[in-house]
């Protein structure tokens, strides 16, 4: 009882348990933000386009923004767990304080979560706009992507007659994919470039990306499409413009 009285006298932010919780909050937030952000960035691997770079950066920022919320919940939960535990078949004495609600705390919580929401939304919108730039690029090459159970094939309408099983793209040039399917839904996904759009029978959907790294990357189907869905994979060869022209020529197109 005496403890309660001393607690009541001091302003709430000077109380010992509040200070401890606050410390815990800071530690947990930094831990969560740092650890989770690092794990995400490492797991997602080396990006092969600006879109993917943006995505990874954004996920790291979102992690840092949500870390204080998770940290606060964790700090309060941990602090409560540390201070008064009770085991046994009968309940402990009833709580010695009667906070049944706190409009102030609730309001702060709701407004903060609203602001975080707004931040995530605005940030997401901006990145979305940025990613959509490739779609409007005047110098973009077009590739028609066809999904068929259980293979992808690619047509290069700028070089009529050129078709391939593996995708070939020049580096640093926007590509617009016109995606469709012959039978059921597939999802065209270039893993390291962070772009994806479903291939729907009866429709043509679009997505665009600018590869910015030379190398071989993966195309996978991201929508369950039947028996051999797991094997519906191809490769993307991102090459220099000269190599790309040479490849087009070797396939019978005009460079």
């Amino acid at each position: 009882m005496s403890q309660t009285q001393t607690q009541d006298k001091a302003p709430w932010w000077k109380r010992k348990d509040v200070k401890e919780t606050a410390t815990l909050w800071v530690i947990l937030s930094v831990l969560i933000g740092g650890l989770a952000g690092e794990v995400i960035a490492r797991s997602m691997g080396a990006p092969a386009s600006e879109t993917m770079e943006n995505t990874i950066r954004m996920m790291k920022i979102f992690t840092w923004v949500s870390a204080p919320v998770a940290g606060l919940v964790g700090a309060i939960a941990l602090k409560s767990l540390m201070q008064k535990r009770h085991y046994g078949d009968t309940p402990p004495a009833e709580s010695d304080h009667e906070i049944a609600n706190s409009p102030k705390a609730s309001a702060v919580w709701i407004v903060t979560s609203g602001l975080l929401c707004l931040f995530a939304l605005v940030f997401g919108m901006i990145v979305m706009q940025e990613d959509a730039k490739s779609l409007q690029a005047p110098n973009a090459i077009h590739v028609n992507v066809t999904g068929q159970q259980w293979l992808w094939n690619f047509d290069y309408p700028d070089n009529a007659g050129v078709r391939s099983h593996d995708l070939y793209l020049p580096v640093d040039r926007p590509v617009i994919f016109n995606v469709s399917a012959k039978d059921v839904k597939h999802s065209f996904w270039i893993v390291q470039m962070g772009v994806k759009v479903d291939a729907n029978p009866g429709y043509i959907t679009q997505t665009a990306v600018t590869p910015n790294k030379i190398g071989v990357f993966d195309v996978r189907c991201a929508e369950l499409c039947g028996l051999l869905h797991a094997y519906m994979q191809s490769q993307v060869h991102v090459v220099s413009q000269a190599d790309y022209d040479a490849w087009i020529k070797s396939q019978g197109g005009r460079a």
């Binding site: 348990d17 919320v69 767990l81 008064k84 009770h86 085991y87 709580s95 609600n101 919580w109 709701i110």
Partner: peptide, 22 residues
């Protein structure tokens, strides 16, 4: 995520300074 957050608030608010019967 706002109403979902409210449910978190209710739970941690209830835990805060309670006597936890484990």
């Amino acid at each position: 995520s706002i109403p979902t957050g409210m449910l978190f608030l209710v739970l941690v608010g209830t835990l805060w300074r309670g006597r936890l019967w484990l």
